[in-house]
């Protein structure tokens, strides 16, 4: 079993230290240092298979993505509220297959998470070999809505690739957009 390099483990360690500080509600340096020691110990003792990060994280793209994400959550929440009140039992749904560009587990998981968090779409099944998400969409009435849902998922994935995809994925995406 290959040990992840420090660079790969760093995000995990930083996250553990933040959680430690948050749990004690104390961000003084000595507490954080003790948290860092504990984080290293935990990461060594309870060893998990390393998440294959690409080593790239674009903060400039991440902030607008987070803002757009929050906006979409608000809009979709209002839409689901409206559907529950206005349409209720007569709502029509669909299960749509969306093939993703990326084949890395991290990308598929991240896309599935973001899509599930936005109300109105939900990942029912994942086919890991072809990296296809099967998404249950609320209020999908016809082929047009299916295309819209599929485009939304692919756009979400494109945004995530721009934030933290590998260089190869980014190059493929840019080529696709440019073509």
């Amino acid at each position: 079993m290959r040990r992840g390099s420090l660079r790969q483990e760093l995000p995990l360690l930083v996250w553990l230290v933040i959680v430690w500080g948050a749990l004690w509600q104390d961000f003084s340096p000595d507490n954080l240092l003790f948290g860092a020691l504990l984080a290293v110990a935990v990461a060594r003792l309870f060893y998990l298979p390393p998440v294959e990060l690409s080593g790239r994280f674009n903060v400039l793209k991440a902030v607008p993505f987070a803002v757009v994400f929050l906006g979409r959550v608000v809009a979709a929440s209002c839409q689901v509220f409206y559907l529950a009140v206005a349409q209720g039992p007569k709502v029509t749904n669909a299960v749509v297959a969306v093939p993703l560009r990326s084949h890395s587990d991290l990308m598929v998981t991240a896309t599935g998470h973001v899509i599930s968090l936005i109300p109105g779409s939900l990942v029912v099944e994942v086919d890991r070999s072809t990296s296809t998400l099967y998404i249950h969409g609320l209020n999908v009435r016809n082929g047009e809505d299916v295309l819209k849902l599929r485009k939304e998922v692919r756009d979400t994935e494109a945004g995530l690739i721009r934030i933290m995809g590998t260089k190869e994925e980014l190059a493929a995406l840019n080529q696709e957009v440019g073509a």
């Binding site: 749904n93 109300p119 109105g120 609320l138």
Partner: peptide, 19 residues
């Protein structure tokens, strides 16, 4: 209460937990 089947109810259920 209003949606007809389990799957559409799930869409409503994720909402208070996120937003």
């Amino acid at each position: 209460l209003r949606f007809p089947d389990l799957m559409s109810r799930m869409h409503a259920a994720t909402k208070p937990q996120v937003l």
